[in-house]
Design a protein around this nucleic acid. Sequence first.
DNA 1: GCAAGGTC
Length: 864
Amino acid sequence: MKLVIAEKNIAAQKIAQLLNDAGKPKNDKVYNTAVYRFTVQGEDWVSMGLAGHILAPDFPDEILFDKKQGWYSVTEDGEVLPADVPDGLARPPYSSKRRPYLANGINIKGWKVESLPYLTWAPIVKKPAEKEIIRALKNLAKKSDAVIIATDFDREGELIGSDALDMVREVAPDIPAYRARYSALIKGEVMAAFDNLVELDQNLADAGESRQYIDLIWGAVLTRYLTLARFGGFGNVRSAGRVQTPTLALVVERERERLAFVPEDYWQIRGIGAAQGRSDTEFKISHATARFTDKAAAETAFAHVDGATSGRVTAVAKRSRKQQPPTPFNTTSLQAAAAAEGISPARTMRIAESLYMSGFISYPRVDNTVYPRSLDLAGIVGGLAAGSPALRPVCSKVLAGPMKPTRGKTETTDHPPIHPTGQGNPETLDGGQKKLYMLIARRFLATLMGPATIENTKLSIDVAGEPFTASGDVLVEAGFREAYPYGLKRDEQLPPLVEGDIVDVRDIKLEAKQTEPPARYSQGRLVQEMEKRGLGTKSTRASIIERLYQVRYLKNDPIEPSQLGMAIVDALHDFAPRITTPEMTAELDEDMTKVAEGADTQDHVVDHSRALLAGMLDTLIEHKDDLGEAIADAVTADAKVGTCPKCGKDLVMKTSAKTRGSFIGCMGWPDCDVTYPVPSGVKVSPIEGEGSVCPECGAPRIKCQPFRQKAYEMCVNPKCPTNFEPDLVVGECSVCKEAGRHGDLVAHKSERSGKRFIRCTNYDECGVSYPLPSRGKLSATGEVCEHCGAPVVVVETARGPWRICVNMDCPGKEKKAAAGRGGARKGASAKAGSRATKSASKTSSKTSRTKSATKASAKKPASS
DNA sequence: GCAAGGTC
């Protein structure tokens, strides 16, 4: 039997199909890995896909021998280094004897940064990362008489194949091994590759492995250095890396440009025009001098037209322009287009992966922007028409047309550009999936259609001797725009005017403006910029940006660096500049090429890189305390939400050591004891300028951003009247009413516990009381619950306004809790909700949430 | 608790 090892499942499947003597390959499983059995000239073959790299480089366990001690650990005898640092390269400038050792436990302060030189020179081993796949691979290898490495035809593919071969050799040391190199998963290519098998290119694999090692060493050393320079507690990693740090630097650089930007004043004269007596035809007019840089000139011109009520059309110019249809999607252009529709690149890739796995779209990680000839364009359009009623009309048009697909600049042959398969029913997709799928489907159709024609009309209008203009764009021929409306501007239709017509004008104003600084990056723009600068790959850019958000170097979208992000870039720029620029990647690529060509060796290149890093460590360690301080200051600045009304110091977000929960505390602690609770489940940020201080109580107001819901602002002080109305009457007591007396239901707040509740004024007699959510402004509705007759109130919770029946045991709660599981149910309801809701909310893991959601919706009656 | 690169 011959074993074919591909990089991924889809390739293994395709190869089996293409090489098979006849018919379909047999799908099989080895342990949990899909394999494909087929025959080639009567001989039994089997193919299996890996999942990319199956081994991961790491430091040996001896260095991390105690998982608990992690980064602080060393070997028993204090020796980390094997004695195989090549001659001629600097050894660490200290001996193990000098190292401050861990007498009783861990001498963290002395040890942590001192240990970095050891790490720089530490050996690296490859550890199994995909144990299940390795198990299947070895199982098949034992039964095979030859293996053929058929991983992707690139550097990483060669490395993945080489790692796989190493695993094979562990169980079949002498098995013959070959390499098949194909650059497209099509019959001709694959057949030719298997007819002309070659040997694995170890140099190329070594080049890839060098990349792995250098990334790990630089990343681990600098990340540990930054993290430990001022340890911020677990979960506060300050990461650095060959790709992420230059990417962060791009954002910081843009922010610095904005900060350094000196706005220039300019003036505009603008107003409203309309066909005479036809205020329904209004359009914008502006002075022909779009921007006056001279204030006096602007004022002179404005003096002429101030109060003018009419003008005369002096010229009408029409000009039509064509907008060419877009090129096919590759990973980067899909990410950029989706980002413009509010889907982050990382989320785009997660959704695209799921669409790919369920057969809706083609392979999503591609550079190619040219459809291969073999792609059945008409067949896909037909499939789209059948599956999606919304696309049917435009599909018919495409099928009737000449269908000449556009071509992008990048042409590779590994995979076709991202396109819909035309299979599957889009109605079964969830919100995000459907949105992305439609984008991909519409883009595909657009690439097969003609240009759009936009007609521009420009009016020249004389108003009291001053030249004005008006401009309007109208889509006169939709072309591809019929399929692809994304980013299309709305028509600006001007009324049909001719030279000499009189137009009404009104509201001509002189506006003082300032030039704007360069715009911040959107996530889509940043992905494109990374590509331009050679940072990361199509498969990694999205996750690297996400990582920068996760470590809180970046915030918001358009992207802003945090103070921490800026401090990190500054620190590395000063002491390890190599990591902060795209040049490190460029130089690495040069080194990799040399290794691949055999002009240099892995050991030499990696050791050279280690030496470069080692050369920076003295300076880094020397400045450890300064840098630690800079990081701590930046973190405090990022955490600031306002100013303490009691002592004037900063109020910052803090984490309780005991409960791990967040709260807002004063930097003056322990001298100042001001603290505020933080709404749960929301992202809190300060409000700048106006509205930043509560006019009622002087505490800061904050902006709360709930997950995927509208942000709102509130005062942080829960006792503030803007958050709670004391002694609010929310309704009448039904128990008392039945007993023939009157009782008001009044909201109270316990002084001791801070808990809020509703109690009847005749509580001693009727015993009626209801609990309330602990936070959120309360207001009465005057309504009573249809299920139990208790009052209905509105609570402004962290996630927006929410109507509740105050009765915990209301029979209506059960149904609501079940029906609302999908997301309509608001956060605070768990606290004040029925007992059933309460117990359900305790299961907080994702899976159980999903499970109960499925269950609940299954139970949901069809009528609701 | 580290990187970046594959892909699930």
